[in-house]
Every structure is written in structure tokens, then in C-alpha cells.
Computed example of a mutant assay.
Amino acid sequence: MNSQNSRSDKILVVDDSPDNVFLIKTILEEEGYTVSTAENGASALAQLEASPCDLVLLDLMMPGMDGYEVTRRIRGNAAMQQYIPILLITAHDAPNVAKGLDLGADDFIRKPVTVDELLARVRSLLRLKHSIDERDEIARQREDFVSRLTHDLRTPLVAADRVLMLFQQGALGALSPQMQEVITIMARSNTNLLSMVNTLLEVYRFEAGRKTLAFQPVNLPQLLEEVVGELTPLVEAKSLSMNLVIAENTTISEIMGDRLELHRLFTNLIGNAIKFTDSGSVNVRLSSAFASGKSDESHTSENSTASDYIIIEVEDTGPGIPPEEQATLFERFRQGSHKSSGSGLGLYLSRRIVEAHEGTIQVKSEFGKGSVFIVMLPVKS
């Protein structure tokens, strides 16, 4: 047995030839590997879904579902969260090994296989598998640590926020004007930090798969009116104007969604528009779109389908976004060049919320002339 094997790696051998399967299985088992077999592609996929392995040895030419299709399905299966290397086994006259590699296979070996070459390629791909698994485990541990840290940070920040509020309300005694000014600055800084911690916590909940959304009917015009009302003091403080426009011919105003997360989404988008706009206005528009190509005038709520969308646009007259920043705007920790840019998490979280509702978000911006963020949310009957 190979002393390099620190654990019994599980290998799936897929080949329609019993002789080939027996040969390869014998070689691998003598090296201490745990080997399972499948005589066709469908059986291989069923085994992988039931019990993932560490490596797949896959015959390229099989009747029915060939190795190309098996490779494509393995790489396209989102349920297989762990990476599984694929080693293609091909005859000398196999026409297009490159096609298999392009579909996601990692290496190939030609028949008839030699013991040394087979074992060398198996060891190489298993090293790759172990390296990726270790990297993913480190990433998971880091995300768990950040999630716990941000959760623990919220407690003292919330407590500080309440104490500062008591000071501002005079519940702990009268304050001099100088102290009022200091407390106001402290309260604002604490609120910003608490908001950042909350955003970071939500981001890692999404990334760790621990975010559970509570879907229910949500009246979007009502929700937008609520968000706009809550943010009006910020608009007034900057002497901006803010308008909420519901298109007259919008016949669909309700979707199935998580109201709390949608509230967070629009608060972030509208809040950003206010923050980056020094003069002019912030406009929020709601309308409908239909995949059938029908206009709002001819479309009624009775014939809505899963292809119908509600569109929410948040437009500002701010400085706009440089073209080179627009491509990465919704990525994690991508801070803009503007002096008011934050941690780079707000728009990333917004994208995750939109995607959780099976919608899309995009930005259109002309540098120096403002931006418009466009959210499309599907209406499901």
C-alpha cells in the first residue's frame, strides 16, 4: 500500500467495459484507494448525487451518455458543492479530448493505461483535490469567525447607541452645547459603525448559506413610500428633492418576497443616491415589464405570468460612476473612488438580495451626470 495515502480517498471508475473496470479497480485498490464503479453515465451521476467522491475516472466514449455529457452535468450541478477532479480515459483514436477539457475535465490518460502513468495522474489530481478542500475549509472558518465576530460586536454597539440616545434626549441630565455637539458626533459615528457591522453580518449569512428568507406578498408601492418617508430627513438636510413616481399604467404592484430584505435593499439604494448627490434630486420610479411584449395599457393583472417583472429605478443627479468602476460595482469590498464611498459591501449585499428573489440589478451611469440603478423583480403567479 502507498504510504503517501493519509486517508482512503474514494474514486469512482466509470466505463462500459468490464475488463477495463476490473483492471483499473485492481490497480487502485492495491494502492489503498476505495473504488466504486459505474457502467454508464446515468449510473455515475446517480452515485455522485448520493455520495460524492474524491476523483472520477471517466471513459470518454460510452453508449448513450458519453463522457462529454457526464462531465458537463457534473460541472453544471450546483448541488455538488465540493470540487471533484475528472480524469478522462480515452482510446488512441478518440477524436476530441480538448472538448472534454473545455467542458471541465482536469486531465486525460490514453488506453491501454500503464500502471505508473495511471497512479501518477491519480496522485496529481488527488493532491489538487486536497489543496482545494483545504482552501475551502480555511475560507469557511474565516467566514464563521467574521460572522461570530460581527454578531458579538453588535451587542456593545447597540448598548452604546441607546446610552447616547438617552444623553441626547436629556434623560441623564442637561448637557452644555459643547457636550451636545460631541454626543451628536459620537452617536452618528456609532450609528455608521453599527450599520457597517449589520451589513457585514448579512453578507456572511448569505455567503455561508445561513440566510433564510420569509416570502410573503409584498406591496411594493407601499414599501417604497415607507422607505422614502424614512429617508426624507436626509434629503431635507441636503436641500434635495425626492420624488416617488408610480407609473399610471402599472397593473402589477405586488410580488412574493421577503419584506425585511426588500426594505434593506431599497433603503440602501435610495440612501446611496442621497449620499452621493449634493444638488438636484433623487427620483424613484416603479413600472411593469412583460416578456410577451405587450404594453402596460393592454396588460392586466389577470394574465400576468412568471415572465412579468416589476421594475424599480433609483435615479440621482450625483457625480456619476466612472466606466472602469461600473464593471465591478456589485462585487464584494469594491470601494468606489468617491470620497463618500463606504466599505464596498452595500451594493454587493443588494445584489445578493435581488438574486435571492430571482431578479436582476444593473446600473446605468454617465460620469458627471448621475446614475440610475435598475432592479427587476419577477412576478410569479
Rank of each mutant, 00 (worst) to 15 (best):
T360Y: 03
S341G: 05
T184S: 12
V35S: 01
H357F: 11
V227A: 00
P378A: 01
A171F: 12
S381K: 13
V203K: 05
G293F: 10
P319I: 12
S337E: 14
S350L: 01
K275L: 15
D161H: 14
Q47C: 11
F108N: 06
H338Y: 11
Q82W: 08
N5L: 15
D316Y: 12
G344R: 07
V245K: 11
T37Q: 09
A139F: 09
R334Y: 12
S381Q: 12
R72T: 05
R259P: 00
V122I: 04
E49D: 13
G32R: 00
E358V: 02
T232I: 03
S341A: 15
R264F: 08
G67C: 05
Q82E: 13
T250Y: 01
L194F: 08
M186I: 05
D116W: 01
H357E: 13
S239K: 12
S295Q: 11
Y204K: 02
S279T: 09
E324I: 13
H357L: 09
L58K: 08
M165Q: 15
V218A: 08
R285D: 11
E207W: 05
I270E: 04
E315V: 10
V372K: 08
Y348N: 03
M186V: 08
D59I: 00
I353Y: 00
Q335K: 15
A139R: 11
T305A: 15
L345I: 10
